[in-house]
């Protein structure tokens, strides 16, 4: 005879909490890099209008570095595949 009892929900891995913190930190870093890039864009516009052409290349390079940092943050650190899904069920 089969029992109709619902199986207790598995306790999620405690490492998940740490992972959330790291993911949150990554998000904050990305936002900060975006803000820096916004400032660089404003500085580029101002330098171009002021005809300070010598400042343009360093500014573009800085923006490029920020973009590389963003790509690194997005692609370098990826959370490993979790054992449990968000609803708590064990992955097959």
């Amino acid at each position: 005879m089969q029992s109709n009892q619902i199986k207790p929900r598995p306790i999620r891995n405690l490492a998940g909490k740490g992972r959330t913190a790291v993911a949150q930190a990554r998000l904050i870093l990305l936002v900060m890099v975006n803000v820096a890039q916004l400032w660089i864009l404003a500085a580029t516009v101002e330098a171009a209008l002021a005809h300070r052409f010598s400042a343009l290349l360093p500014l573009v390079v800085a923006s490029g570095i920020c973009f590389v940092v963003t790509l690194t943050l997005i692609f370098w650190w990826r959370p490993p595949s979790r054992r449990f899904t968000s609803s708590g069920y064990l992955k097959q």
């Binding site: 993911a23 949150q24 990554r26 998000l27 990305l30 936002v31 890099v33 975006n34 890039q37 916004l38 660089i40 864009l41 580029t44 516009v45 330098a47 171009a48 005809h51 052409f53 343009l56 290349l57 500014l59 573009v60 923006s63 490029g64 920020c66 973009f67 963003t70 790509l71 943050l73 997005i74």
Partner: peptide, 30 residues
């Protein structure tokens, strides 16, 4: 969170292209 990360990545690319484009145009015009 992942969607937002991707959005920030796209924003970063757009800001870089914007800076490079503006600087390139200014240098070309001069």
């Amino acid at each position: 969170r992942r969607e937002f990360c991707n959005f920030l990545g796209l924003t970063s690319a757009a800001l870089f292209v914007g800076s490079a484009g503006f600087a390139g145009k200014a240098a070309f015009d001069s």
